[in-house]
Design a protein around this nucleic acid. Sequence first.
RNA 1: GUGGUUGUAGCUCAGUUGGUUAGAGCGCUGGUUUGUGGUGCCGGAAGUCGCGGGUUCGAAUCCCGUCUUCCACCCCA
Length: 456
Amino acid sequence: MAKKPSIPKGTRDFSPLEVQRRQYIMNKIQHHFELYGFMPIETPSFENSDTLMGKYGEEGDRLIFKILNSGEYLKKTSPELLETGKENQLTSQISEKALRYDLTVPFARYVVQHQNDITFPFKRYQMQNVWRADRPQKGRFREFTQCDADVVGSNSLLQEVELVQLYDAVFTDLNLKACTIKINNRKVLAGIAQVIGADDKLIDFTVALDKLDKIGKEKVQEEMLSKGIDQKAIDLLDPVFSLTGSYADKIASMKVLLKDSQIGLKGIEELEFINSSITQMPLKSAVLDLDITLARGLNYYTGCIFEVAAPEGVAMGSIGGGGRYDDLTGIFGLKDVSGVGISFGLDRIYLVIEQLNLFPDSVRAGVEVLFINFGKSESQYCAGWLSRFRESGIKTELYPDSAKMKKQMSYADRNAIPYVILAGENEINDGKLNLKNMASGEQLQLTPEDIISRLR
RNA sequence: GUGGUUGUAGCUCAGUUGGUUAGAGCGCUGGUUUGUGGUGCCGGAAGUCGCGGGUUCGAAUCCCGUCUUCCACCCCA
């Protein structure tokens, strides 16, 4: 046998059942996107490199899949550059295109490029693959699907409120109870950094703080120290480390800490508004939780940030994330257009639903009815009814060969086809069909019309 | 990018201190009354033991390299 073919690491094939289940999730998400007034768009799988590079931070740039130029790609570069190995310069010379890393940046590019055709505020959704040159691990792939909904051209905090409700609506519909929607605000983080006198270390500070629930207070403090944040500043952070209680309690203590930071208080005010709005229209199954340590999110976020954690007991990274970005389109030359959006991680949601056994049995591939093939004349008799069944919306197939009954029956069995129809000489003479229920074994001689009305 | 882990039939895995034709279960396939599947019984096909190199009389087994799997870190959906 020839060497077995394979696929690149971090990619997957999907079986019929898996595709069916992915579509089940996507259909729910799409349904709610549209209920909330979002319109679909699609963008190319790859963009010009300069559209993507520099938007996700240094780490992000490293993880962008670059596409090698076609033709004589070394022509533009010089031997010296190859020798010295200055990768950044070299990459930009031999690669001018890259696979998209997320859907938000291409969307910002889309908005700027088509600004004259767009009526603001513009609400779009997009469900497409993205690629990251990451090392695969649990729930992490190099090719995966994101489902994004964003609004650009509105500063209103009502958008944030709606997006929280949208998260809740989708997860409720997927029967994924008790997801935690964590919320924080970049302004609050900036405020804290300001108050402790570490404005210039904002990124290091937030990255370290983000790890609090994972590695604990001591380790976080160590990391901050090692990044050059001084002990006095870290001492000032104590109230943040020991923040407990309800959303409102946390807000109250943060107000005290941030009393001298204008930007910090602005962030608190935003968080307060969202909470009071949600309190008036309670979520159906998700929990909104203020998490001051939540810092992640890409470079471009400026206001509220979101992250969704799977239900308790499921070990999985975040299954969704998003936030407000005030100036993403500014990078592409369109000022003063604020955007806010959320993303659903299809692949991780799939894994969570699978682990919790929440895929409905009705989500399955394959037909509902198999006609057993008894031979040429019998299958011709069936052929007419096949079309009638299909026109009635019943997924139907005829076994292609007049193979042994055993083989045909076990085909039905293994494909979990619920009904089999036997039509041999006797049935043809009576003008009937023999309908067999595979689960119960029950068999009935019925007219084709009877069967259609039963199955429809 | 860092650290660890894995790779033997289609699938899940055994394989003893390196020693004759590499095994099991499941699956596949044929038979078991010629119009009846999921359980039984009997038979069969299928693996240059991830790939490349090395040590050895001899390597699935030891060494080196490489790719792959999975996990943690970094980062993220």
